[in-house]
Structure formats: structure tokens, C-alpha cells
Design a protein around this nucleic acid. Sequence first.
DNA 1: AATGACGCCAACCGCCCTCAA
DNA 2: CTTGAGGGCGGTTGGCGTCAT
Length: 208
Amino acid sequence: MGRSPCCEKAHTNKGAWTKEEDDRLIAHIRAHGEGCWRSLPKAAGLLRCGKSCRLRWINYLRPDLKRGNFTEEEDELIIKLHSLLGNKWSLIAARLPGRTDNEIKNYWNTHIRRKLLSRGVDPVTHRPISGHGSDTVTHFERKPAAIGFGPDQELDKISSSEESSAWQQRQPKWPDLNLELCISPPSQQQQPLEPVDGGGRATAKPVL
DNA sequence: AATGACGCCAACCGCCCTCAA
DNA sequence: CTTGAGGGCGGTTGGCGTCAT
């Protein structure tokens, strides 16, 4: 089936956002909520594609974003989550309040990959790089244990949706990692996460 | 001081998935 | 059941800042 373009590209701006565009987008979302991204640019008086507005809001303008450097704890959590979930950045982001999938993805590619390589760990498989000394697993790995992730086994739900991934099939489970699928709005403690969104993927919905 | 190389990250692109008509 | 719209995701790119020479 033919896919219609997400917007009229001939009449949209591209590239870096200006302060004025940011202000318009923020003002519009504060007044009307996120609503329909496709129609938002017109309603907000922006010459931008709806997707671009959504990305700008989610990755940069949302009031609950943390920004700033990642802490050591966040680093380790990202590594653990990546070893379990793979490149499911939105799922990983859902467990890091104030962080976005794009931010984590960038951080992974620029910092953590190197960090793992320097430890002699393959950033894709999370296993020791061959010829890099011992045959032991990374210090995150544990003996597989008959453990669950809470009564509703949320992680298993994810895993089953990713069953084609050979990656999943060899992953140990982490007895020490609380993987309840929750996100934390800025001013609240953890709340249940909808594990699957409209696109069939887990999403950390921003909370205004 | 100049400039080339490198790294970071915001933004774009194309595809996937769901749902309503 | 089929189709198209819409939202969302992961991968990739390009511009800019910093570092090295």
C-alpha cells in the first residue's frame, strides 16, 4: 500500500529548531495537550512536520526531562537493561525517569559501547570478547535462576513479543534487577506502565 | 593561530504496528 | 477482511564544538 507522507514537506522547516518555534510548541501543548501530532503544527502555527514536533517535544522540551550527565548508577542500569532488552531504547528509557530513548541511544553509542569494550565485553552480546582473557561472563551476568519479575511477569510479556530475536533466547535473567515495568513522572513515584502502546511497543508516556 | 580529525547529539528517515472506517 | 491514517520506534546522518597537531 502506498504510504502518504507524514506531512507536506515542501512547506515545512527542517533542521535545528529556533527559540520561537520551541516557545510556540510549548505554549500550544500547555494549552491543548499533545493531542494529534499531525494537526498540531498547523494549530500551533508551526511550519514543521508533526513527527518533528513530537520528537522535539519528547526529546528536548518536555518539562520532566533530566538532562545533564548520566550517573554511574544510570550507566550500570542501562547496561543491565540493554543486556536484557537489546536495542529497545524506549523500554530502557521507560526505566530511567527523565531520560529519553534518543538520549540513551546516543549515550550508549558514544559512551557505554566504549566502556564495555574497554572492559573486554562485547556491547552487542554482553559477553567477553574472545581472546580478551577469561571465559567468564561479565560481572552483570548471573547464573540463570528460576526467578520471575513479579506476579504479572511483565518482562516475559516483552520477551514473548520479541521471540524472533535470537538474542533473547540466550539471555540470563537478573535476580537482582527489579524490572517492574514502571515509569516515574517527575513528581510522583512509580506508576504502572502500559507495557505496549499503539505501535505495539512499550512507551514511556510523558506526563504533563 | 590555523586547520584537520574526531566526538557528540539533535534531528531526520523509513519502517512497523494498531486501529478505525 | 482490507485499507489507510496516525503514532511510535530504531537506525542513521549532518552540523557543530572540541581536541590534537
